[in-house]
């Protein structure tokens, strides 16, 4: 450790400068804190956090599409955990269940019967809730990319994909939007079975999205509407301060 010989006056000055720096540091911190708390907000959170989410999205999205969520074995018949009932509180409409598709000026609707006969794929993997819990779940249905090609959806006139897919419950109370790359991921399914059984009401009967490369908030239950668009469709939790991307 170095020793220096100095005058008391110089030592006093040294200390004063150091303390001024320390207090300035505290002031800057208080300023940042205040700015975050009462400064500009964007979709329910400080714009600083919104930019933080977006910077993370840019960074991680580059790695996203090819990685899969590890396959697991799930005991058949185990009741999948239920979380959240927004959009499921009204009774299912009577009669043939229809799924509306909106893609620019094109508006089509598909009866459930025309979807359940599509080639079935099954995956078993860990599903992660944004709250922190996770559970291994098996799910089966039509791969979303297969659904798109079977029904000739999701592509613009020039043959390229739309940038976003939006999904909504029939009552429009819950809605999500997801980037196209994640929707084309092989583990992203429109599912009608979980853990070997047809979906229960609060697991999203009769048809739900299952997308294990995102937090569970994106796996919309009871799909009533699908939107293909280059403009990002609305997203329930992203309007309430959460990261829109929510990729894992």
């Amino acid at each position: 450790m170095n020793r220096i010989e100095t005058e008391p006056a110089i030592w006093k000055k040294k200390k004063r400068i150091a303390w001024i720096c320390a207090f300035s540091f505290l002031l800057v911190l208080a300023g940042i804190f205040t700015f975050i708390k009462i400064g500009p907000q964007k979709d329910g959170t400080s714009s600083i956090f919104r930019y933080g989410f977006m910077a993370n999205e840019k960074l991680w999205h580059a790695l996203q599409s090819k990685k899969i969520s590890l396959e697991r074995t799930v005991p058949s018949g185990k009741k999948p955990r239920v979380n959240g009932t927004i959009g499921l509180r009204t009774e299912l409409p009577e009669g043939d269940y229809k799924i509306q598709v909106v893609q620019d000026e094109l508006k089509e609707s598909f009866g459930l019967g025309t979807i359940l006969v599509l080639p079935k794929t099954s995956h078993s993997t860990e599903f992660r809730c944004i709250e922190g819990w996770s559970e291994d779940m098996q799910y089966a249905g039509i791969r979303f990319s297969d659904f798109m090609s079977e029904k000739n959806l999701g592509k613009k006139k020039d043959g390229t994909y739309y940038s976003y897919v939006g999904l909504e419950t029939p009552d429009g109370k819950y809605y999500v939007s997801i980037d196209m790359e994640s929707m084309l991921h092989p583990q992203t399914l429109l599912a009608w079975e979980m853990n070997g059984k047809p979906l229960s009401r609060y697991n999203g009967h009769p048809l739900r999205l299952m997308i294990p490369i995102k937090y569970g908030i994106k796996s919309l239950k009871r799909v009533g509407k699908i939107i293909f668009s280059d403009e990002r469709p609305r997203d329930y939790w992203a309007e309430r301060g959460y990261d829109w991307y929510s990729g894992l």
């Binding site: 975050i36 329910g44 959170t45 400080s46 600083i48 956090f49 919104r50 933080g52 989410f53 993370n56 944004i130 709250e131 939790w237 309430r240 301060g241 959460y242 990261d243």
Partner: peptide, 11 residues
């Protein structure tokens, strides 16, 4: 306050 926590944490 999960959303707020995540905002702070991931930044």
């Amino acid at each position: 306050r999960l959303a707020e926590g995540m905002g702070w944490h991931f930044t």
